[in-house]
Design a protein around this nucleic acid. Structure first.
Lengths: 205, 205
DNA sequence: TCAGAATTTTACCATTTGGTAAAGTAACCC
DNA sequence: GGGTTACTTTACCAAATGGTAAAATTCTGA
């Protein structure tokens, strides 16, 4: 066994693996998988390259570990959408949580965006296995709300896409937003998005 | 002068530069700047690597050329928004043109997304010089429409962001959309987005 | 305290990558 | 046709990159 993490990870293991993953998140989210180098990650983590390879089986192993961890964080806000709550409140809450994540975890958002942009080569299994069932479940839920007349009739799938797009935009396209607004404006974004989704979702007459 | 394109480009020049740029668009849009290699571009173009370096000064030169060309294409739909037209019609037309571009030029969209995602290192001058003035002009235009009571009062800047985000999503996150919808659905996207922006922009009472 | 396990460092290596020099081939113009 | 210019190929190279072997060091529990 050259694998040090078969059994219980020691204190040192946890600390160093954590440092490496944090550094890798930083580098991968900025340059994408192929653009990131182990040397960059090593320097950002303050750990030598061979030492990094003591904790992970290789570059890809680090990336995959990161993506797996990310998937959970990523799905949480959607999972939290409560079937028994008020539909409009639940959807606006989801928008709010996604926007908060863009503000608080922009690196995670960009890591994800990078992976999807490049065709999700290391993530499509996860998308199929974890995201898709949840997506379909929530689409069905939204459809029942629509059928019950509690929401205006719009395509649940495209509604979710637009929520993802509009909220993640502030993390993924931050460089552009910075240039155009001379700084971030999450307050303005929140106000606008609440308005946008309230208007389209409120049932008409 | 080792630069062959100082004067009028010959037929061969135009053809080969075109082939190289097309191949480079393909590769850069898929892997990002640092993830793309000259060998990949050479193979995709059907031109040997040294020959590519006869036409361009280096990898960065190709990338910059591509981004400059792209900027024009990219701004066109926004430029076409007519101050003298009907506000809602103009904005919905803009949404439509952007969505068409996502469908017809997904590689261009992803090239742009890659560059912004990585902090726009080679593009922020262009953003400042070309995009920002246009953005501010159109924000002002939308504001006059709002002030005239022809549109509901929403932040013009965030409105434009959301139009970008929702339309480009279908090109940039295509891999995800494919998984979740089992194929593209530009028809559904169009219908949804028209609805979304009609509802938020129509002046109330 | 001390043997064995866990961790870290040093010294490498093979491949890939952006790029160049120079010789060869094709095109053009008189 | 021949000289000049434009283009293409061949043969390289230095640096960067992912990864390894093995020695050296630090930790840990009996």
């Amino acid at each position: 066994m050259t694998e040090p993490r078969e059994k219980k990870p020691s204190r040192i293991q946890q600390r160093n693996r954590g440092k490496i993953l944090d550094a890798a998140l930083h580098v991968f989210s900025q340059h994408g998988y192929r653009g990131a180098t182990l040397d960059q990650i090593a320097e950002a983590a303050g750990i030598s390259k061979p030492n990094i390879l003591y904790y992970f089986n290789g570059k890809e192993d680090i990336h995959v570990t990161l993506l797996s961890q990310l998937m959970e964080t990523w799905l949480d806000p959607l999972i939290d959408m409560n079937p028994d709550g008020d539909p409009l409140t639940e959807l606006l809450g989801y928008v709010q949580r996604k926007l908060d994540m863009s503000r608080d975890f922009p690196r995670e958002s960009r890591l994800f965006a990078n992976e999807i942009l490049q065709g999700a080569p290391r993530m499509s299994p996860h998308l199929e296995a974890a995201l898709k069932p949840l997506f379909e479940e929530k689409c069905a839920l939204i459809q029942t709300w629509i059928d019950a007349g509690q929401l205006a009739p719009v395509s649940p799938a495209h509604l979710i896409f637009s929520i993802w797009a509009t909220t993640q935009h502030y993390a993924d396209f931050d460089a552009q937003v910075q240039v155009l607004l001379d700084g971030p404006d999450y307050k303005g974004a929140e106000e606008y998005l609440v308005r946008l989704y309230t208007d389209v979702l409120a049932p008409k007459s």
